[in-house]
Amino acid sequence: MEAVMACWELEQSLLTLTGVSPGEGTGATMSDDDDDPAESDPSIYDPAFDTHDSGAFGPLIPTETERTLMERVRQELKNELKNGYKDRIVDVREEILRKRRAGKLPGDTTSVLKAWWHAHSKWPYPTEDEKARLVQETGLQLKQINNWFINQRKRNWHSNPSSTAAMKTKRKR
């Protein structure tokens, strides 16, 4: 289905660029699904297709006017597609940046959490009372506070040798 839609869109683009429908002239369109058996039979000769000096079954060489027209259409189609995709790429980029920004906490709240973190770097597990105080100070939800500490411990704590020793001592007790 996507291929059919893509062909239809190309037909519409060609119509817009050239003013000529793909069905005009040969009667064929890019989205024709039925094969004409006469097209595949080499014994059928149609003199209408032999307008150039290339022989009955030789390659058809476009005239200079046709080449110029084909090049102009190719350039226009290329520019139209490039501009169409450029807008879409910008939209996707903005959406990605918007989603990336949405996950970040404000700087003033993280500075409060980091201050607590540095003050308790040997055992960075706040009690429920400390979490309630942090909720009041930062305006964040308890779940956000819990997630921030979980992520902070994953990122930083286990790489600190003094905290690893503290953790082992706590486990032994």
Results as ranks from 00 to 15, higher is better:
V4S: 10
V4A: 08
M5H: 13
A6W: 04
A6H: 15
C7P: 11
E9W: 05
E9Q: 15
E9P: 08
E11S: 03
Q12D: 15
L14N: 09
V20Q: 13
P22D: 10
P22S: 04
E24Y: 14
E24Q: 14
G25S: 10
G25N: 12
G27M: 14
T29I: 08
M30E: 14
M30N: 07
S31G: 12
D32G: 07
D33L: 14
D35R: 15
D36M: 12
D36R: 10
E39G: 12
S40H: 10
D41R: 13
P42D: 05
P42V: 02
I44M: 08
I44F: 04
A48F: 10
F49Q: 11
D50E: 10
T51S: 09
T51D: 07
S54D: 08
F57Y: 14
L60S: 07
I61Q: 01
I61K: 03
P62M: 00
P62G: 00
T63H: 00
E64Q: 05
T65G: 04
L69N: 04
M70D: 03
E71W: 05
Q75H: 05
E76K: 08
L77Q: 04
L77N: 00
N79I: 09
E80C: 06
E80D: 10
K82D: 00
N83V: 06
N83M: 09
I89A: 05
D91H: 03
V92C: 03
R93K: 00
R93S: 02
E94S: 09
E95L: 02
E95S: 06
L97R: 00
R98A: 10
R98H: 01
K99Y: 01
K99S: 03
A102T: 09
G103S: 07
L105E: 12
P106S: 10
G107Q: 13
D108C: 05
T109P: 02
V112T: 11
V112I: 14
W116S: 01
H118D: 05
H120R: 15
H120A: 07
S121P: 01
W123Q: 04
P124L: 07
P124A: 07
Y125F: 12
Y125V: 09
Y125C: 09
P126A: 14
D129P: 01
K131G: 02
K131P: 00
A132Q: 06
E137L: 01
E137H: 04
E137S: 00
T138R: 01
G139Q: 06
L140D: 03
Q141S: 10
K143F: 12
Q144F: 03
N147H: 04
W148E: 00
F149K: 12
F149P: 03
I150T: 13
Q152P: 11
R153G: 08
R153C: 09
R153E: 09
K154E: 07
K154V: 14
K154Y: 11
W157D: 15
H158N: 09
H158F: 06
N160C: 07
P161I: 09
P161Y: 15
S163V: 08
T164A: 13
A165C: 10
A165M: 08
K168W: 11
K168L: 14
T169F: 02
